[in-house]
Design a protein around this nucleic acid. Structure first.
Length: 121
DNA sequence: TGGGTGACCATAG
DNA sequence: ACTATGGCCACCC
């Protein structure tokens, strides 16, 4: 493995790019939280920035599975930001992820932590 | 330039 | 268990 090391430059633009890359690395049927991504990138409290980056994810040419990114509670906080708000839950259910009341039921099961799954070189 | 906001998280009361 | 507050950093007005 060699592509798993995401490098962040001083440019915030690269930070956005890094977030997108991590999100794309999320396996199908899995989900992670903003905090985990920010923690993986080094910005512990930069969880908000991750969400901000996701907001710009739709502008990226490459597909970014933003629906696989939820908050620490497993709640689909960003669903309202999707083209059709219900699309987020739809996409998750398509990946065998059970969503109940805008929250992932088995979030702990399908939880995917980049720092755990991705190996550092 | 400065203040307010946000798809968050952790801690304290 | 729940609510309140701070922190964090980029973006917008």
């Amino acid at each position: 493995m060699s592509d798993n090391s995401i490098k962040i430059s001083e440019k915030n633009k690269d930070y956005f790019d890094a977030v997108f890359q991590v999100v794309r690395l999320i396996p199908k049927g899995r989900a992670t939280s903003y905090g985990s991504i920010s923690n993986y990138l080094g910005t512990k409290s930069g969880a908000r920035m991750v969400g901000w980056a996701m907001n710009a994810s739709h502008t990226q040419k490459e597909y970014v599975p933003a629906h696989r990114v939820v908050n620490r509670n497993g709640m689909l906080t960003g669903k309202h930001h999707f083209s059709p708000p219900e699309a987020m839950q739809e996409e998750l259910e398509k990946e065998d992820i059970e969503v109940k009341n805008d929250k992932i039921s088995n979030f702990k099961k399908i939880y995917w932590d980049p720092s755990e799954e991705l190996d550092f070189d």
